[in-house]
């Protein structure tokens, strides 16, 4: 299990990355944390003529920062840094909650938040969290930059709408509003494994009414957010939520695989969804 040969590029600035991608196009692959990419290379499930290693970009922030009402994460913010960040826990608690389920410390120390989002694994935590938060990424190339809403970033599992010469240098997430509560739940076979099923929930409390939305992972799709019909605060645990979630789950299209059938996954989606929304509601009402 050794990777096939490739040419290695170590750009020092975002502009150099633009330049390299413009030259190399589809021959090249961006290497950030590498925790998803390198296993694939080691197994020779894929190979690339060129790897562009972002790890030595000069002056890149290692920590997330708040700009206006958004949290901004550069391409080298490691999952560990985001998880340990008190700022993140305060302004985007969902991100902290989701990160706790991402693999293990030795993976999170290298893996980047942006990298996981761009990689777009339907069983991964961060794409679902980012979708629910209506986050956006900034795609850039020598041609310029453009924002892409998370939901429009992915076209399918491990596939995205970036052009051959584009890469992502920024993830922006709206900071939590006072009336919002979040929760994240997941079931995996072992601690840190990819989810069999996971769910991120956001509940907004306004005028005695609760508006919930959920995004699933491990359920086949990627980036889809289900907005549930509003309910009165006292009815959050009532039958309304159950039927709303049942409808949301019915829209999901999880497949059968070695670890779980679609039917079991749907069961989990409902069970996890119920408690997740209920916990998010509690937090929203605090």
């Amino acid at each position: 299990m050794k990777p096939a040969p490739f040419a290695y590029h170590r750009p020092g600035s975002r502009e150099e990355v633009d330049q390299l991608l413009a030259q190399l196009g589809s021959e090249a692959k961006i290497l950030a944390g590498g925790q998803s990419l390198i296993p694939i290379l080691n197994m020779r499930l894929a190979s690339f003529g060129h790897l562009i290693d972002l790890n030595h970009l000069a002056g890149e922030p290692a920590e997330p920062a708040v700009a206006g009402d958004e949290l901004v994460l550069g391409p080298l913010v490691r999952q560990a840094a985001a998880l340990e960040s008190a700022l993140v826990a305060e302004v985007i608690p969902l991100l902290s909650q989701a990160l706790r389920h991402v693999a293990h410390p030795a993976i999170r120390s290298r893996g980047t938040v942006v990298g996981s989002v761009v990689h777009g694994d339907p069983a991964a935590e961060l794409p679902a969290a980012v979708a629910l938060l209506a986050g956006s990424v900034r795609a850039r190339s020598r041609r310029g930059t453009r924002p892409i809403l998370a939901a429009e970033l992915w076209t399918g599992a491990l596939e995205n709408t970036l052009a051959e010469d584009e890469w992502v240098d920024e993830l922006r997430l709206p900071v939590r509003k006072a009336d919002e509560g979040f929760a994240f739940e997941e079931f995996a076979r072992r601690s840190g494994d990819y989810a069999i099923c996971g769910v991120a929930a956001r509940v907004r409390a306004a005028d005695g009414e609760l508006k919930a939305a959920v995004a699933y992972l491990g359920m086949g799709g990627l980036g889809h957010v289900h907005a549930l019909p509003p309910v009165a605060a006292e009815e959050i645990d009532g039958p309304g939520l159950h039927s709303a979630l049942t409808e949301a789950v019915a829209e999901l299209d999880p497949g059968d695989d070695l670890h779980a059938s679609a039917r079991y996954r749907r069961w989990l989606a409902l069970e996890l969804g119920l408690s997740c929304v209920s916990r998010a509601a509690e937090r929203a009402l605090k």
């Binding site: 076979r189 069999i196 670890h259 059938s261 039917r263 079991y264 069961w267």
Partner: peptide, 13 residues
């Protein structure tokens, strides 16, 4: 065994 199988036992189709 597996969670899948326990699910199938608890929730027979």
């Amino acid at each position: 065994l597996s969670p899948e199988e326990l699910f199938q036992i608890l929730h027979r189709e």
